[in-house]
């Protein structure tokens, strides 16, 4: 049942869309694949679109934080976009803060954050 999610390139950034209810192995695969893609393409930013995700539990939340930390070591910024209100309310109640992860309401605003960072240089933020 585990699969590998497609990773798209937009300019110097990578884009992953979480479409369905993921099993744990697919989540682990994504973590590996993203790190590899960041290095291979010299990506400066990673966008993870969770618009379609109906829930984010602590396992997925931890994965998002880990991806952000790994990417930062590889000099890429991670932005999580499209979190649903019900998911955000649940995460707050769960006590998960997604430390180190930047978020934006939608893909457009996520790309704007990355564009601003690259124009301001790596020292920004």
């Amino acid at each position: 049942m585990s699969e590998r999610l497609p990773i798209l390139r937009i300019g110097g950034n990578l884009l992953v869309s979480i479409q369905a209810d993921l099993d744990d192995q697919t989540v682990m695969n994504l973590q590996e694949d993203l790190a590899e893609h960041v290095v291979r393409h010299g990506a400066r930013g990673v966008i993870i679109d969770i618009t379609a995700a109906e829930i984010v539990d602590s396992f997925v939340g931890r994965m998002l934080s880990t991806i952000a930390s790994i990417s930062r070591l590889l000099d890429a910024e991670t932005v999580v976009v499209g979190m649903r209100p019900a998911v955000a309310i649940t995460l707050v109640e769960l006590g998960l803060s997604l430390g180190g992860v930047r978020t934006a309401l939608n893909l457009e605003q996520g790309l704007a954050i990355l564009a601003e960072r690259s124009s301001a240089g790596p020292a920004a933020r």
Partner: peptide, 12 residues
């Protein structure tokens, strides 16, 4: 307070 934190998680 939770509203503010949830909004921040969403990027606002």
């Amino acid at each position: 307070l939770k509203t503010v934190v949830a909004a921040r998680l969403m990027g606002a």
